[in-house]
Amino acid sequence: MSELGTRPLLPGTPGLNRGGAPGHPAAGHAGSGRSSAVDTTPSDRSTDVEGPARRLAPTLWALLVVVLLLLPFLPLVLASFSRAYFHPQVLPETWSLRAWALVLAPGAGTWAALRDSVVVALAVTAVSLVVAIPAGRVLGTRRFRGRRAVEVLLLLPVLVPGIAVAIGLHVTFLRLGLAGSLPGVVLVHLVPATPYVVLLSAGVFANADLGLEAQARTLGARPWQVAWSVTRPLVAPGLAVAALFGFLVSWGQYATTLVVGGGRVVTLPILLFASAAGGDVAVTAATALVHAAPALALLVVTARVLGRGTATLGGER
């Protein structure tokens, strides 16, 4: 029983114990500069002798991988700045801001969809974070009977297909008058988002040096002082990342919004899909880029916050 507290549900996941969730945006930055001294294995040293071409090979291959991964964005960008961009043209013959002007025009559907997407995602993030802080603290720091069951219960909503959850909830929501409403969409987004934020928060609390709380208490700090001045700075950067992930889970939801929103809640993915299924290619491409932009912007911001946060924590210890 004693090992239950430390073993993650899925063996080897960096998730619960190491804080870095699968797909953690900052995982790649976290230690990239750290191990350069250890990185030279004997065989690497022997390749040094064989010349710079051999040493450069992995870099060039990795560059190719990155180029391939970024390639799908190229036609999106090109199409969004084009007019009459037809088959044999690799680059548009006539460049144009027409699609961007249509998508960003005051009163365009994009703004309403952006507003609905932001409102829903912020509500989902807020609710998820509020319930994830106590739950994450318990899961990250305590050993108890039934822990494995709780972890399975939290993992399933993330993995079970959204469409199954959506049509199941829709029947009930029709009766409750929640179908086709923003609150209904928020509720269905909570199903995948909340467990995600809880599991990420558990990692944050597991990594935080909460022993400092006891020290503060010994020195006479009141509970709220401990919470505000000790716990908050320890966990805030990690919780910000967890919240960002909750936001992004909601931001990308299509199936659940389609079914529960019933065409009356038009978030950005709904608008984008409708445009892709039978619209102007240039407008579709511009809409797709609008939808992608906040995700990437938030990712960059959080990577910075996280970098700064961990640096501060390192300094305090």
Partner: peptide, 22 residues
Amino acid sequence: LTTLFQFDLPIPHVIGAVAILL
């Protein structure tokens, strides 16, 4: 390269599908 490698992670599937379509 590692940062660019993660670029697709936060991109919603609908955008990915539209990009693959084009």
